[in-house]
């Protein structure tokens, strides 16, 4: 019930370096006060500039930034800028994942996630087979953009659900937050893994290192969590994570053990093998089934959430495997410091 560890002081992170005119204007507005800005129509919806600007806009709803006043969260000028960026991002995603008549077949969509490929070229397969420690550390540093606030974007949807779907989603979230034990909170286990791998587990660390492909995945969760109209998509996104996480986490446990990582570094993914085998059942039977029975019209958005998550995950996977295949860092700023041997 109570943590065995001393509480850590809450310190909002510093602002990142801009990556183009859009993020430069946004970061400037956060620092000095909002000014109206327009988003160029030809702005790459998946590009570094837009994804960083969008990420910073959303971060005001999570932990904020040092030196940025808290009330900027609801500044109408900033919200207007955010809305234009969201339109571009969502338009691109919808165009890129549109299928055909099966756009509303949630069961078929989920079924594709429940088949386990044994010869897949994905990141967790690579790390399990022949990943190196520096690649594992890069992967964990990049994943910290989400896992240090794990379950927070999905908690935003709770108030938008009704009845049994809400109960089951809260059960999953309760487990994510440690099921009453603060030391078992998944974000805490992730921070412990970062420390054990010699990484810095402070909340805002590695934002400048994270490429757009990483930010886009988190931005999808945030946009779907913050918009009631996208509650179906948020559930689809969450389902994708929960359905695919268990086997992927098992491969990462094997990778960390093969790389002789300390025990504290293995715990996070080991926990997810078991936890997400439960969450998969709960989100399918407890959340999606009753939600669609009550609101059948949400099926299209659930499918959209599943496909958009898959698309963005594939983009990140391609980037990581491409960089690592060439023997170079996938980070915008390579990690400093040697591996701390604490185990």
């Amino acid at each position: 019930m109570l943590s065995r560890n001393p509480p850590r002081p809450v310190e909002p992170p510093g602002l990142p370096q801009p990556r183009g005119p859009l993020s430069a204007a946004l970061i400037d507005a956060l620092k000095h006060g909002p000014v109206a800005q327009s988003v160029p129509e030809d702005c790459d919806p998946y590009g570094e500039d837009l994804q960083l600007a969008l990420y910073c806009s959303y971060e005001l709803h999570y932990r904020g930034f040092a030196s940025v006043p808290d009330d900027r969260e609801w500044d109408p000028t900033l919200l207007a800028a955010r809305a234009s960026m969201e339109r571009l991002f969502l338009y691109a995603l919808r165009a890129d994942v549109a299928g055909g008549a099966d756009d509303v077949d949630v069961d078929a969509e989920l079924a594709t996630l429940l088949i386990e490929p044994i010869d897949a070229p994905g990141v967790s397969h690579h790390l399990r087979r022949d990943g190196e420690l520096w690649q594992m550390r890069e992967y964990v540093a990049l994943r910290s953009r989400y896992h240090l606030k794990e379950a927070d974007p999905q908690a935003l949807v709770i108030a938008r659900l009704e009845g049994p779907a809400k109960t089951a989603l809260v059960t999953i979230e309760h487990d994510e937050y440690g099921a009453g034990n603060p030391d078992r909170m998944h974000a805490k286990l992730f921070a412990d893994m970062m420390d054990a791998l010699g990484l810095c587990s402070a909340y805002g660390q590695y934002l400048d290192a994270a490429p757009a492909e990483v930010l886009a995945e988190v931005n999808l969760m945030s946009v779907c969590g913050l918009h009631r109209g996208l509650r179906g998509a948020l559930v689809g996104q969450f389902a994708t994570v929960e359905l695919t996480s268990s086997p992927g986490s098992d491969r990462l446990v094997k990778a960390l053990r093969r790389l002789e990582a300390p025990a504290a570094a293995v715990d996070f993914y080991a926990e997810h093998v078991e936890a997400d085998a439960v969450h998969e059942q709960l989100i399918r039977r407890g959340v999606i089934a009753p939600m669609l029975a009550a609101e059948p019209a949400l099926a299209r958005d659930v499918v959209f959430g599943i496909r958009a998550s898959g698309l963005l995950a594939d983009r990140l996977s391609a980037l990581l495997l491409d960089c690592w295949g060439q023997g170079r860092s996938a980070l915008r700023r390579p990690l400093a410091g040697a591996m701390a041997r604490t185990g």
């Binding site: 008549a101 088949i115 490929p117 967790s124 992927g248 898959g310 594939d314 990140l316």
Partner: peptide, 27 residues
């Protein structure tokens, strides 16, 4: 159930309408 990607790709190719096949490859 476990499948080889090669077999899966073959099955998907037979489904003409599916523009965006999902793969769990990255996760």
């Amino acid at each position: 159930s476990r499948v080889r990607i090669a077999d899966l790709a073959h099955d998907i190719a037979q489904e003409e309408d599916r523009a965006q096949p999902q793969s769990a490859a990255t996760r």
